[in-house]
């Protein structure tokens, strides 16, 4: 797990950029989302959800990314972790949560995200471009829009290697190896740093903010930069509730109900 200095055979006469970073610099992009247990109602405009009574939290997949960033920096012994969120002022609370978990500083890209994932990715990519990050981490998906695209788009825009939905991430010197789950198996991949990864469940167990962390978070830097998002090529037509499943029925109690179930599956549902 330890990011290392280049080995002697990788030394050249040229100044080696990795030498300047015996430390690791990691950006984590985070999003504020409704708690997954929240009951979701559609607002009167039909274009947004009704936020009344909904608790907003750090996107669950971003917790894996935050944990990975903190743990990788701890393993390296030195460096910097930066949390980045694009959104309205409410995201500052979520950024503070990541600072309380142990992220060093936060960047609020202040503006209104678009329904077009690429327009948002361009805003985030521009903010990260000259940051000199070794790793840029994302969640696999945001549990509100399920867009599942911000990470790989930012990677493509910055011309960086990318692996999505990683369940294992190992850094060795200037390269990374990852595992990701695919249908019926696990894919192994490797790439050079700097690189972009999106984090899936299984990568780690995210820590909870400690009391000390919460106190420390109040004093950590949170920089606000106003941003504007470009034109959207993806426009929202509307939101709707999914069709209700037709009411089912209890066919009976205990093993005695098995024949009735088999009958229903055979002649009604026709799935046996």
């Amino acid at each position: 797990m330890l990011p290392r200095l280049p080995t002697s055979d990788s030394f050249t006469d040229e100044p080696y950029p990795a030498l300047e970073r015996e430390t690791v610099k990691i950006a984590v992009c985070i999003r504020r989302v409704p708690d997954t247990t929240a009951k979701i109602a559609i607002g009167p405009s039909g274009a947004t959800i009704d936020p009344a009574g909904v608790k907003f939290v750090l996107n669950p997949y971003d917790e894996f990314a935050v944990e990975a960033a903190i743990a990788l920096k701890e393993a390296a012994g030195a460096g910097e972790t930066v949390a980045v969120a694009f959104g309205d002022d409410s995201v500052q609370e979520t950024l503070r949560t990541t600072l309380a978990m142990g992220i060093d500083r936060a960047m609020h890209l202040q503006g209104a995200p678009s329904t077009d994932g690429l327009a948002n990715a361009r805003v985030i990519a521009a903010a990260l471009k000259d940051g000199g990050y070794d790793l840029i981490l994302f969640g696999k998906l945001a549990v509100d829009d399920y867009a599942q695209q911000t990470g790989p788009m930012v990677a493509e825009l910055l011309d960086l290697p990318c692996a999505t939905a990683v369940t294992s991430l190992t850094i060795d010197g200037g390269s990374a190896t990852v595992e990701r789950e695919i249908e019926g198996g696990t894919e192994n991949a490797s790439c050079a740093l700097p690189a972009v990864f999106t984090c899936d469940k299984g990568l780690n167990n995210p820590r909870l903010p400690s009391l000390k962390g919460i106190m420390a978070a109040k004093k950590k830097p949170l920089d606000v930069t106003p941003v504007t998002v470009g034109d959207a090529q993806s426009t929202l037509v509307g939101l709707a509730l999914p069709p209700e499943r037709p009411a089912g029925r209890i066919v009976g109690e205990g093993a005695a109900a098995v024949p009735a179930l088999i009958e229903a599956l055979t002649s009604e549902a026709k799935v046996l």
Binding site: D144, D145, Y146, S234
Partner: peptide
């Protein structure tokens, strides 16, 4: 599906989506 399948979103995608 969005919001863990609690909502269905309809989008119009321009260009070659």
């Amino acid at each position: 599906p969005v919001y863990a399948g609690k909502v269905i979103q309809t989008l119009d995608l321009a260009g070659t989506p």
